[in-house]
Amino acid sequence: MLIAFYIAGVIAVVSTIMAVTRSNAVHALLYLIVSFLAAAVVLFVLGAHFAAALEVIVYAGAIMVLFVFVIMMLNIGGETEKAKERWLVPKRWIGPALMAAILFAILSYAILNQPVATASLSIVEPKTVGISLYTQYLLGVEIAAVMLMAGIIGAFHLGYTKRKSKHRFLKGE
């Protein structure tokens, strides 16, 4: 299991780096899906079987597909970005990478400076998760539902286009 954790972890990190650095948007997304799958393995190893399944189904399966759809709709996959192949000049990434490195250093300092001895991990069954979700977190689920509704209404409104009418305020623009 430990080996699985390390292998999945390395794959997750490498594929995430690839996802962030690829110039081709579709490639980046595919790497990201790999990264999410690896993350799912990590979650599984950590004992969260339910979450691992959700990671695959919702994150890699649903959300990422949405991204792919939009990229294909806008047709910005390959060529537009290819033209700027040399986009990854050091000037652009060195600052952000440095910042992220510092942030990571700070966080690892905090993580590794634990006064308490390392606790062990244990498996949390999907059943307990489900029960807690619908008892203790019932109101939370309700709020999440409202949140999704707000998202749907917002996306519906914003996605709507009709060319002929123009807002009176915007005639000047």
Binding site: G95, P96, M99, A100, I102, L103, I106, Y109, A110
Partner: peptide, 16 residues
């Protein structure tokens, strides 16, 4: 976004 990241780093540095 870089500003926010920098702010975060500064905040954490000060706090820690």
């Amino acid at each position: 976004a870089a500003g926010i990241a920098l702010g975060l780093i500064i905040t954490l540095t000060i706090a820690l």
